[in-house]
């Protein structure tokens, strides 16, 4: 279970308050207007922004003091999730060992992860030789190898067209189910939230509300969210 206990973080003149629980295995969307603080929330959990107060913990183990790479989570950014000068195998291998000194068994794991995302045999290629959808799959293969319980998605697959994005979200759902991942996805697309998540966190002017069922939130949005969604 992910716990944010009375967390407060400031970024410039902006302050974010968060107190919530996300049960293990849940898939939760983070919804809110631009500037409401949803990306700040993700940065806070991922370790790119230190909290000023409060505690962040996974299964009771606080991790707000750990560097980003040591936290019990993987993150997929909006874009540039791959290093363009490294091969696909190296990009995925970073999920196993950041120093890339892999043994034969680990090379096998990389190949298997690529196979699981439908990219068997792509090891030696460079990211530039792949389509946008394939690059996203590489990032997911790396998530598989990091074997961390929490997956953060920051407006993922934004560069992909609607159909391809739905396909990627389906792949995320499949992987999350199989690996038992807890997923937190920042999105501004209501249909993405409906497609992937059963719960949603509404962020409004720096206040993070507790998760509520996604469909209920989107069917009957509060005033602030209604204005954002244009309903």
């Amino acid at each position: 279970m992910l716990t944010l206990d009375a967390v407060r973080a400031t970024q410039g003149s902006f302050t974010l308050h968060a107190a919530l629980h996300v049960p293990k295995g849940a898939r939760v969307a983070v919804i809110g207007a631009s500037g409401s603080g949803k990306s700040t929330l993700l940065n806070l959990i991922a370790g790119f922004l230190p909290p000023n107060a409060g505690q962040i913990a996974w299964d009771g183990a606080p991790f707000a003091q750990l560097p980003p790479g040591d936290r019990p989570l993987s993150i997929i950014f909006q874009d540039s999730n791959l290093f363009p000068h490294l091969t696909i195998a190296q990009n995925v291998g970073l999920g196993l060992r950041p120093n890339l000194r892999l043994n034969a068994k680990e090379h096998g794991e990389v190949a298997k992860a690529l196979e699981q995302v439908g990219l068997a045999g792509f090891e030696a290629r460079k990211p530039a030789a792949l389509s946008g959808g394939q690059q996203s799959r590489v990032a997911l293969a790396r998530v598989l190898l990091r074997k961390q319980p929490l997956l953060l998605l920051d407006e993922p697959f934004a560069a992909l067209g609607p159909a391809l994005r739905q396909e990627m979200l389906a792949l995320v759902a499949q992987i999350a189910d199989r690996e038992g991942l807890t997923v937190l996805m920042v999105t501004h697309e209501p249909q993405d939230a409906r497609a992937l998540t059963e719960m949603s966190i509404f962020v409004d002017e720096g206040v993070v509300h507790a998760p509520v069922p996604t469909d209920a939130l989107l069917d009957n949005p509060p005033e602030a969210l209604r204005a954002y969604l244009g309903q």
Partner: peptide, 25 residues
């Protein structure tokens, strides 16, 4: 600016960061 967050998220630090990210780029 472009890759710092990604490298941090993957725990790419110290000499590994220099060897794998910085020097090649």
């Amino acid at each position: 600016k472009d890759y710092g967050k990604l490298a941090d998220a993957l725990g790419l630090t110290g000499m590994a960061r220099l060897r794998i990210l910085i020097l090649p780029r």
